[in-house]
Amino acid sequence: MAIDARPPDYIPGRPFLTLLHKEIRRFLRVSSQTLFTPIITASLYLFIFGATLGERISVLPGFSYAQFVVPGLILMGVINNSFSNSASSLFMSRYLGNIVDLLVTPITPPQFIFAYTLAAMIRGLAVGLVVWLVSMFFAALPWHNPLAAVAMAALASFLFAQFGLIVALFASSFDSLSMYTNFLILPLIYLGGVFYPISILPAPWASLSHLNPMFYLIDGFRGAILGVGDLPLWVAFLVAGAMSAALFVWAFYLIGRGHRLSS
């Protein structure tokens, strides 16, 4: 006969909320690295492309270059920081071994994933928000469809939080972790249309860019803000949604099995 199960004062949502709280505190504790550095980097980009070069370039009729580039820079901040947060937090826990502190608790795989994801999204979106506030010095955005813009930013941060979790599980060293950032995320962002519209590229490059997942996120986000994009908004959402779902299923499968978490 099994004894009474959980203690009477067990609060069902509490393990999830505690992990979320811990993850948020983690990035706030090192906010100089996790929040201020990305904001300063983005501000430098804004200065270069918004205030200096921006006045001499025009890539989209009817909009200044600053107006064109700001949505891309905001989303770049969102993507980079959502990815870094879940990737470095989970990898550090694996590396230092304190992941066992979670493995021995009743936290379920979905609670685990959603806590890491939500914290990563909060950091990514917070950086995005500040980049937008700073960008007001350089360009006024028309906010054509604000709801869709926020939804796309949220979707992008969700997607890269999942990707961060997956990378954290496969990475075997800090070096390999930064390889993903430097040789995968950054090139994809830079080539995904942050600084130029894909439509101005010559034929093979324009088509090739359609294989870049960033293109759909950046174009969708910019399209929602400016009202003009290379793709219809629904296509951007469809592709971003499908990618998010696929990565979530993958992360769920890996974490559910304890892949490289339990021995």
Binding site: L96, D101, I107
Partner: peptide, 27 residues
């Protein structure tokens, strides 16, 4: 309590103990 020493460098003892109860769904 595992044999390998594992700690989370981000937190103090006090904070970590408070948090750990929460992982078990407890106040």
């Amino acid at each position: 309590m595992h044999q390998e020493i594992v700690i989370d460098n981000f937190f103090t003892i006090d904070k970590a103990l408070k948090m750990h109860a929460g992982y078990y769904g407890l106040r």
